[in-house]
């Protein structure tokens, strides 16, 4: 059931995470973020980082989560291939596994600037959760 996908935005790119729980949808959205940059299969889970964020609602929490990852990627030159999310009352505890970005091996396509509020939604559709927004690149 769980998966991620990209959707079109005229200038940039949308990412959509789908999962059985809200946390799983957030994890899948994060994988969609990495997949904008490089092929997930080529990223080794050598480094582990802990990430935290808070927001008043799930929509804003998704943007915060993705922006926290983007900032971690930018400041530590990392790219991640695996995520784990735990959600408690507007608080997110996350883990990410990845490695230092190697331009010769990862061939990074594009550098995410920030997750936006465009096409932003976190909601339940029957048995699945959807978490999506557009990322400025």
């Amino acid at each position: 059931m769980k998966h991620w996908e990209h959707f079109s935005h005229e200038a940039d790119m949308g990412i959509r995470g789908i999962g059985a729980t809200c946390a799983e949808a957030f994890e899948q959205a994060a994988l969609g973020l990495t997949a904008m940059v490089t092929d997930l299969e080529g990223v080794k889970p050598l480094v582990h980082v802990e990430l935290f964020c808070d927001a008043p609602d799930n929509d804003l929490l998704l943007v915060d989560w993705l922006n926290t990852i983007i900032c971690e990627m930018a400041t530590r030159h990392l790219v991640f291939s695996s995520y784990e999310v735990r959600l408690t009352n507007g608080h997110l505890d996350g883990s990410a596994w990845g490695e230092k970005i190697d331009p010769l091996r990862h061939h990074p396509v594009v550098e995410p600037k920030g997750a936006t509020y465009t096409c932003l939604t976190v909601h339940r559709e029957g048995e699945i959760w959807v978490a999506q927004c557009v990322v400025d690149v």
């Binding site: 943007v63 922006n67 900032c71 930018a74 600037k113 920030g114 997750a115 936006t116 509020y117 400025d136």
Partner: peptide, 17 residues
Amino acid sequence: RGLGHQIGTEFMKQMVE
């Protein structure tokens, strides 16, 4: 570069709130 991106991200959030 990253500085502008981070300022945009942080102030967007503050302005929404």
